[in-house]
Design a protein around this nucleic acid. Structure first.
Length: 263
DNA sequence: ATGGTTGAGGTTCAA
């Protein structure tokens, strides 16, 4: 089973890219973030025609929005309102009766890394705290699960182009990394990407639009993650990040992250 | 220190 997560930055604008992803990566399940559309305008029909008729979607006007697209049968599990906000940042589904898949979009957090003056950063830290509680609850449920999505944190020094230059940049500050790591630990989550790609290796899933040549400058960050419960680890076959997708026509600033499961 | 670009949806906000 191949599972992909991708911050698509508008599912309607990038429907052709999604179609190309289906064709070139042959995923069984695709989790999307920043779909940026209400459910009534979600391109369900086209996606079903392309072979992914099983969907769980949760969108809102203009911002955020998450979706799970599957060619395997799913059982929708609904979404949680993190931080008491109904803002379309989480949706879940049981995939083929085999695992519970959670698609998440963590708040970006604005520019100023100070929760006292920046409400968006405070929201992000609160969200990460709640992810720790939530992961602990899930863990007690005891089912095989994955948590994937745009977590908007690059935890390792090798997850950013310059650890030193990004220490005070939102997504790589010590407080975010600490809360991110706490959430991972509380849920007992395994980082499936780093399970296969050594932590010593530089690895990114996002490159800013604000660069003349993203490939040449290569000032990336690994903001997109695929976490799995330990009981799924024996089934893991591989992991990869589709860097070339950043070079597709009219690209998202994020690229798809893949995990393959056997059995 | 600052600016750089993109998307949605309207005459700006979020990333």
């Amino acid at each position: 089973m191949r599972i992909v997560t991708w911050n698509i930055n508008s599912v309607r604008l990038r429907l052709a890219s999604l179609e190309r992803l289906f064709a070139e990566a042959a995923p069984d399940v695709v989790c999307l973030q920043e779909t940026k559309t209400v459910d009534d305008s979600f391109p369900r029909g086209r996606i079903a025609e392309l072979g992914y008729p099983h969907m769980a979607i949760r969108g809102m006007k203009g911002y955020n929005g998450v979706a799970i697209l599957s060619r395997l049968p799913i059982e929708p599990l609904g979404g949680r309102n993190f931080c008491g906000r109904d803002d379309s940042r989480h949706i879940a589904a049981r995939i083929d009766g085999r695992l519970d898949l959670h698609c998440l979009y963590v708040p970006a957090g604005g520019d100023e890394p100070d929760p006292e003056v920046n409400e968006k950063f405070a929201h992000k830290l609160g969200f990460l705290d709640e992810m720790a509680e939530w992961g602990g609850e899930l863990r007690r449920g005891g089912r095989p699960a994955m948590a994937v999505g745009d977590f908007n944190v690059a935890p390792l020094e090798t997850d950013v182009w310059s650890h030193k230059q990004l220490l005070r940049i939102v997504s790589h500050t010590p407080i975010e990394v600490e809360k991110f790591t706490r959430a991972q630990t509380a849920g007992g989550w395994v980082d499936t990407t780093r399970h296969f790609i050594p932590p010593a290796e530089k690895l990114y899933s996002w490159w800013s639009y604000r660069s003349r040549d993203w490939d040449e400058a290569d000032r990336g960050r690994r903001l997109d993650h695929v976490w799995a419960t330990p009981d799924l680890v024996p089934a893991l076959l591989g992991a990869s990040i589709l860097r070339p997708v950043r070079g597709w026509e009219q690209p998202s600033d994020h690229v798809p992250v893949i995990v393959d499961l056997g059995g």
